[in-house]
Design a protein around this nucleic acid. Structure first.
Lengths: 335, 335
DNA sequence: TTGAAAGCGCTAACAG
DNA sequence: CTGTTAGCGCTTTCAA
């Protein structure tokens, strides 16, 4: 079996209390004693059992990260920066993919609570508001990422989705597009992006129809499906604002299948600026989120909440950046 | 504070042993008693503390997954299937990105040991063989994924890298290519892929030069850099076999920058068949690994090792599949 | 400066 | 069928 604190104590000829003190750098001690203990630990290759430590009331040094799907490049890129920052601070991360599914949300939330994680980063939409509220009331730190807090009163980090939607749409409009569809997700950030989409129309005096607003779940398949649907209904727009890159890629795939040329026949804008946006040809025009900054910030905020035990309500809004690449085209010049 | 087993016992008017029994479905009990306890748990919203449970010798129901980089689509796709399978079996997954860096490997391995994870899935190359050996000797189940076990005597799951390299190269050769470069990684799987590359040359009676073998780390930047290097040295081949999609994409980027047409001037084959391979134009010819099967299998194997406490040495080899898309071209026909 | 002892929340004999 | 009790490995007073 693995050596315990008792083994070390015996090996060093001291009490477990003394060993505990050298582990935690607490209290004073004769240097010789400290050395004896250290050597004993070395000899036995001793590592404290974090389970036992956690049981005495200390932190578990683990946080939970809930994302819709870790295989979505946006979230895996985000997860990577979160992981790095967390480890810098001595925290491990348990990642759970919810698929935006209420059952899974509940299951994972409960599971992680039982594991006594020190806090949560929630980057997935949350249907079970009640569960979150209880969590919060129990004093567990929570930070929302890419998600509003739904009046929960917890900190949240996100990009200015409204602005992103507004700028993407405005760009399309000023490029001469008049029939612009939007493919959004069933999540709070999409609501704001749609709002931006609408306001852009309003401010340019261009009408839009509700039928041009599609809602789906993030995947290339669904993006393609939406385009096919538009085509079947004879409602093909001249431009599509997709609420994430995955959907935009799906649209591009669908377009190829239908023989629709991009950007000549159809302009496409994505959102997130994941690696995928750089691999398409032409490269995808998209709205970038500062993933690295956001990932670091969300960990810092959570850390602060964990350490101070105080529940702030800070809302951090990052500025999105429209990155113009090859999938959009100026209609006024073109036609 | 969170309710403990004592609170439930008091609430239900029974002893903690009884409560423990209903939690673990052990022993018999008068239905009425069980009901009383269940209701008490319900009322208090009781959840057992997994830390305490783990301390009594039970499993932590957590496994560690070491990958080079979770933001690499191949690994995030793999992580997703692992996560799903693990959760089906009641296990959580802690993912750590090692960047193939020995310091991080050590750090994470140690960290996860302290967290008393039930087992490890190692999908990252491992410089610290000693650490792994000690781990294994301590009885911790380990399964290698995408990596040989380096004589460690633990199970391993991978694709037949030799075959993948052989087929990719053979395809290029039979398409008429005579100057084929390979860009590999500093990992064990790449060694076999290179071996396949060499054997393909040998079996077709085509010579190859060692200078055509490049080694780097997985990223688009590095792939591009390799192509630029070849160009500078005046050693541009007519085809490149990249040992993963990320590198292949980098080559494509580099080619675009240099005005090299793909596949007309240069054929490119990747490896992994990640989502990236479908988003390039033309789509990337690549060698597919059955990620979903591998992910499930690796969890099943680990689970078996955890449950039986037996250390098998099973080697599972999946068959790679060459997927021909648009980045390769038949030279014989072309020229 | 060091150690004895009382928990932390739960499991698992062993009694009753 | 139910309860008592002794740990699991560590932290933390409180004495010595």
């Amino acid at each position: 079996m693995k050596p315990t604190i008792y083994d070390v104590a015996k090996e060093a000829g001291v009490s477990i209390a003394t060993v505990s003190k050298v582990i935690n750098h607490t209290g004073n001690m004769r240097p010789a004693t400290r050395l004896k203990v250290k050597q004993a630990m070395e000899r036995l290759n001793y590592r404290p059992n974090l389970m036992a430590t956690a049981l005495t009331g200390k932190a578990t040094k683990t946080i939970g990260l809930l994302v819709p799907d870790i295989s979505n490049p946006f979230f895996s890129e985000m997860a990577r920066t979160i992981e790095d920052r967390a480890h810098e601070a001595g925290l491990s991360v348990i990642i759970c993919s919810t698929d935006e599914n209420e059952q899974k949300e509940k299951k994972y939330l409960e599971l992680l609570q039982q594991k006594r994680v020190d806090g949560f980063i929630i980057a997935s939409s949350f249907h079970d508001r009640e569960g979150l509220k209880r969590l919060k009331e129990q004093g567990t730190p929570i930070v929302m990422l890419t998600q509003d807090d739904g009046g929960l009163g917890v900190p949240s980090i996100s990009v200015d989705d409204y602005k992103g939607g507004f700028e993407a749409t405005s760009y399309l409009i000023t490029s001469g597009h008049k029939r612009i569809a939007v493919i959004a997700e069933h999540v709070s950030s999409s609501r704001l992006r749609i709002y931006g989409y609408k306001e852009a129309h309003a401010s340019h005096g261009i009408p839009f129809v509700e039928e041009q607003i599609y809602k789906t779940t993030a995947s290339t398949e669904n993006g393609k499906f939406c385009l096919l649907t538009m085509h079947e209904k004879g409602l093909l727009p001249s431009a599509i604002f997709a609420c994430n890159d995955l959907i935009a890629i799906g649209v591009i795939h669908g377009a190829k299948e239908l023989g629709i040329r991009i950007p000549e026949d159809l302009s496409v804008i994505g959102f997130d600026n994941t690696i995928l946006a750089t691999t398409t040809v032409p490269a995808l025009t998209t709205v970038a989120q500062p993933v690295a900054d956001m990932g670091r910030k969300v960990v810092d905020l959570l850390l602060e909440a964990i350490e101070t035990k105080a529940l702030t309500n800070e809302k951090v809004l990052y500025t999105p950046e429209l990155i113009i690449r090859g999938t959009t085209k100026n209609e006024t010049i073109a036609t």
